[in-house]
Design a protein around this nucleic acid. Structure first.
Lengths: 147, 147
DNA sequence: CAGGATCCCGCTAGATACTG
DNA sequence: CAGTATCTAGCGGGATCCTG
């Protein structure tokens, strides 16, 4: 993506959104994207498919069907899945494509904007998986001291 | 402090955590850290102070007092602040230091583990602030089409 | 297949009051 | 100053039933 527009905008209009401020829109946006399901949906759409389960490095952005996402995000209710997808669509992070086949086929795919967020969110998911042991160790130590 | 114990465990039992799985601990950890307040607390502790508001590039990790954090995270209730701080402390992301002065002084500071997460979370906050306009535009377009 | 619509429970986040 | 304790309203989120 070209960072020229972004740099231009920043230098020109200099709209300083600050998530530290309670009434700033970016605070709400931060709240929206700081979500488990958002992270997982983006990770799923950013990786290269459901059959390649051993490792989620980013490959080419991939279009996935609703059922595929549902299966991949184990334990997600269809309400949360649909709700989150709609929210992401509304924010321009992904596109929803309906193909009028015999049973309707719906696919979701990341936009450029969504992909840029995916790169960040991916880090969080990976951090959680990578540092799980250490966090677990800290918790145990902390709990035994209190208990 | 040395984290030798954690490193020992990690090198020994190579458990591959997968946040896509519902019962995986990393799923819950992902849920915990995917939080607005976590992002803001880490950002606050990772930057270089409250008076330097124009830009939140990471400087040296800084120790902050409870009241400082409370002021910086505008709109946070003391309950959420305390609760989130305790959670982060339990997970080993930050340390809580009590200094028995006349009125008690408590400072919070990121650990190495916390700092590593901060680098990731920082990206989210910055993404939200940087792409706010674009998201807003998408929403407007999407809403007018539906309305 | 891909949801929409409802019902409803739980727990969380906020407000308020009190304390070492 | 830095919390703890308590109460409650609200809604996040799951389960269930229904549809184009």
């Amino acid at each position: 993506m070209s960072t020229r527009t972004a740099a231009q905008k920043q230098a020109h209009a200099k709209v300083d959104y600050d998530a530290f401020l309670a009434n700033c829109p970016s605070r709400q946006l931060l709240d929206r994207i700081s979500d488990k399901w958002v992270a997982l949906i983006l990770a799923a759409l950013g990786s290269d498919g459901p059959h390649h389960r051993g490792g989620d490095r980013a490959g080419a952005p991939r279009a996935m069907r609703y059922s595929e996402l549902s299966r991949r995000l184990a334990g997600v209710s269809q309400k949360m899945l649909t709700q989150t997808l709609r929210s992401l669509e509304r924010d321009g992070l992904l596109t929803r494509t309906v193909t009028p086949t015999v049973p309707v086929t719906v696919t979701y795919e990341l936009t450029g904007l969504g992909l840029s967020l995916q790169h960040v969110m991916q880090g969080i998911k990976q951090w959680a998986e990578a540092n799980m042991d250490e966090v677990l160790a800290h918790r145990e130590k902390h709990d035994t001291r209190v208990a």
